[in-house]
Design a protein around this nucleic acid. Structure first.
Length: 421
DNA sequence: TCTGGGGTCCTAGGACCC
DNA sequence: TCTGGGGTCCTAGGACCC
């Protein structure tokens, strides 16, 4: 049996942990740049705040209903997530951290345990240790556990736990469950299925395999097997290495200056290199893109990107910054108001992979490695970007708007000391 | 008139997840 | 005035190989 544990309204709940006076009150958290709503407390949902609603469109509603608004504080949520996961992980022989607020527990071998009672205890423990409320769904497959979790959240709020183990109970719930709410059925498939008169999970499960394979691909077929109680989606206890890494941001203000774009792109390339080093990988290609504000129909629009092949795979910040800036200069055109830029890195390979390159073993490479690892260590101890490249600038002209940011209660602040190299 | 039977790799686009 | 930022996998079709 598997359990899917999911934090309720995670970001909103994190903010509440440090401001308990907000318990029982409507709370929302906004995306970067204070753009859209990305988390809502139950009270905010009840007040009619839609997921993804642009903040400026719901200003009136916020005022009317007295909704408390926060800028997103990912340092806080990431740290809270680690705490929640370490509590939850201790309750099962193996687990998979599926997202910032979700974890699958694998209860293999626990045949004599009353799982519903056990999960009630888990829930209580998380609440006591972290103050974060969670819901738990228990079932023989991951997909059914996801479904059980959704039902628990909606219909069994007080208990917060739902176990689906016998066929009759599973069928009853499949019958009541909208097909579009299934894990793996998104907006498009839901529309398509509705057109074919398939509205519940049970109706989908009844379809024949060939039809599902043809119309919903092998993923759809796996999903249906899982609904029938046959596990097809294995646990992934260790996260696989990333195959591509993207760092991009919208700017707080639009800019037409090359220098401002350069500073942002250097910052993104450096961040991407840090992520690459964290998984002990190199990359052999980098791409940089810029674009104008697509919502401003009154302004000239421009989008471009440049893909660059890197001769020798690397994870050196300095080198990736250099390539990113090279690409940027090739696509930058003056006279446009830019709103967003970003850096992708591709062709990722393990750092220790043998490179049969003529120039592989330069002493200079060794020095770069030492520099990067020293900088990474300093930043880990003292705060992100305490040591950084001068090319990254101070970010004052493009930085995010975060007008309602809560303090980083559990982690250090950035930019305490700035040392440029 | 008739026109084989395998493969690989790459890319774009579309679906999904949080 | 204002509209997020990451990822994964699959498929079809084309180019190319023998």
């Amino acid at each position: 049996m598997y359990a899917l544990c999911d934090c309720n309204n995670f970001y909103a709940s994190c903010e509440r942990v440090f401001k308990p006076s907000l318990n029982g009150k409507p709370v929302v958290v906004l995306s970067n740049n204070d753009g859209c709503v990305i988390a809502r407390s139950q009270e905010a949902k009840d007040a009619g705040v839609a997921m993804g609603a642009p903040a400026f469109e719901i200003k009136e509603l916020i005022k009317q209903k007295g909704i408390h608004v926060f800028s997103s504080n990912y340092a806080l949520y990431g740290d809270m997530s680690n705490r929640v996961m370490s509590v939850l992980g201790s309750f099962a022989p193996s687990f998979e951290v599926y997202s910032v607020d979700e974890i699958f527990l694998d209860f293999k071998g626990m045949h004599n345990t009353n799982l519903t009672e056990y999960c009630k205890k888990i829930r209580k423990s998380v609440r006591q240790n972290t103050k974060i409320p969670i819901s738990i769904g228990i079932a023989p497959t991951k997909t059914l556990a996801k479904m059980a979790n959704k039902i628990a959240k909606k219909k069994y709020k007080e208990i917060g736990v739902l176990e689906l183990s016998d066929t009759a109970t599973i069928e009853k719930h499949l019958n009541e469950f909208p097909v579009g709410d299934l894990w793996g059925i998104g907006y498009r498939y839901a529309k398509f299925l509705e057109k074919n008169n398939i509205r519940t999970a049970f109706e989908l499960m009844q379809m024949n395999d060939a039809w599902i394979r043809k119309n919903l691909s092998v993923q759809g077929l796996k999903l249906v097997y899982e609904l029938r109680g046959i596990p097809c989606i294995p646990m992934e206890e260790t996260a696989p290495d990333k195959k591509g890494i993207c760092v991009s941001r919208s700017f707080g203000q639009m800019t037409n200056e090359l220098q401002v774009l350069e500073e942002s792109v250097a910052t993104f390339a450096n961040r991407a290199a840090q992520k690459l080093r964290k998984q002990n990988s190199n990359c052999a290609a980098i791409s940089v893109f810029i674009h104008t504000n697509q919502f401003r129909a009154d302004l000239k629009q421009y989008y471009n990107s440049r893909y660059i092949q890197i001769p020798i795979p690397t994870n050196d910040s300095g080198e990736l910054i250099k390539w990113a800036l090279t690409g940027l200069k090739q696509i930058y055109k003056p006279g446009y108001m830019y709103k967003k830029a970003g850096v992708f890195i591709f062709e990722i390979s393990p750092e220790d992979a043998v490179q049969t390159n003529l120039f592989a073993a330069l002493p200079e490479d060794d020095r770069k490695k030492k520099l990067n690892s020293t900088v990474d260590k300093l930043n880990k101890i003292m705060g992100r970007n305490v040591v950084k490249y001068a090319a990254m600038g101070d970010g004052k002209k493009w930085k995010l708007r975060q007008e309602m940011l809560s303090p980083c209660y559990t982690t250090r602040l950035d930019d305490v000391f700035i040392i440029t190299i």
